[in-house]
């Protein structure tokens, strides 16, 4: 790890100023991803500014949405009564992520900003377009069991590792950003990027910008769940995960929101599946048809071909479970 300077931001303004004025400066929340990357020489900031002591409010806005400040810890968010009551899928997803120790220090903004996973990204002896743009991708023809099946490019097939973000993707989530130039708000859907030719750019965050908070509201109502399939019971990234909200009325799918984790460079919203099912009979046959349509775009590689079948089965399992729950209401 390259040695670096460390300071604590006592205000949002001082953090914004630091990012603006100092070269090669990064902000740090819980540090559970950035420090790992620094240890591996992947991130090499000269200076880090700690924003973990900035505001940690969770408050209800006038329109009913919940505003969560960037420095709120993952554990705190998962346990918050309003989140557990109104957005159980988010609470559920967060506790499936990482470990208790990591969730206790990791922040909401840090979770959103964590980098994609790939063994070759972490090995500086390997070719990686993300680490060194233009150097090639060792994963495409390498060992790619954990890699993406949706939205890959010839440059990169890494996956976004967050559980929390998969739940945020089926909520109506906005990200509030600030820099010394001003404020802006972006839809969560537009924040993370697919790799394309620029896999080193993972988000829409502009230089000098800081996530100050996120706002969450419902995009759909109904029964919800988060299902994570992984190689061990805890502390493992998802092979596939599914966040889903489903409401069924009179045997008809009234509303549905579904997103997939572990399968793409960003949280993957299953739009095709949703529109196929919305307003139509909630039968197992139609579930399967919808899943097949969604999965048509999936492309497997040598070691992760199984993810296509696993994703189909996991979605089906989740839809069946939620249907049972809805029918018993």
């Amino acid at each position: 790890m390259k040695n670096f300077k460390y300071s604590v931001a006592d205000s949002l303004d001082s953090a914004k100023t630091a990012l603006m004025e100092r070269s090669n400066c990064r902000i740090i929340g819980g540090g559970t991803n950035l420090i790992d990357l620094m240890r591996e020489n992947i991130e090499q900031p000269d200076e880090i500014v700690d924003v973990s002591r900035l505001s940690k409010q969770i408050q209800q806005l006038d329109d009913g949405a919940l505003r969560i400040d960037a420095a709120v810890k993952n554990t705190e968010l998962a346990n918050h009564p309003k989140v557990r009551e109104n957005f159980p899928v988010l609470s559920h997803a967060i506790v499936y992520g990482a470990s208790g120790q990591i969730r206790n220090v990791a922040t909401v903004a840090g979770n959103i900003m964590q980098r994609t996973r790939c063994m070759y990204f972490y090995d500086d002896a390997a070719a990686c377009n993300k680490r060194v743009p233009g150097s090639g991708c060792d994963a495409i023809n390498g060992i790619n069991r954990g890699h993406a099946i949706f939205g890959t490019s010839t440059s990169c097939i890494a996956t976004h590792p967050s559980d929390m973000c998969i739940a945020l993707r089926i909520l109506d989530t906005k990200i509030n950003l600030e820099s010394s130039k001003g404020k802006r708000t972006v839809d969560f859907a537009d924040f993370h990027r697919l790799p394309g030719d620029t896999p080193h750019l993972e988000t829409d965050l502009m230089p000098g910008e800081i996530i100050t908070s996120i706002d969450i509201a419902h995009s759909a109502r109904g029964s919800s769940t988060y299902r994570k399939i992984r190689d061990r019971s805890s502390y493992a990234f998802a092979l596939v995960s599914v966040a889903c909200i489903l409401s069924i009325k009179d045997e008809i799918v009234e509303d549905i929101a579904i997103a997939l984790g572990g399968v793409a460079h960003k949280p993957w919203r299953a739009d095709i599946l949703e529109s196929y099912l919305r307003g139509t009979p909630a039968t197992e046959g139609r579930f399967k048809e919808a899943i097949d349509r969604e999965m048509e775009a999936a492309v497997g590689f040598k070691h992760n071909e199984f993810k296509i079948e696993l994703t189909k089965r996991t979605i089906f399992s989740v839809l069946s479970e939620l249907k049972t729950e809805e029918n018993s209401k």
Partner: peptide, 23 residues
């Protein structure tokens, strides 16, 4: 996880080399 192209261990960490957790 061994990358046969290079003879190199690709998962030299406790995050990627899975051992059982309590659960």
């Amino acid at each position: 996880i061994y990358d046969d192209r290079y003879g190199r261990v690709a998962n030299p960490s406790l995050a990627e080399y899975h051992m059982p957790v309590h659960l």
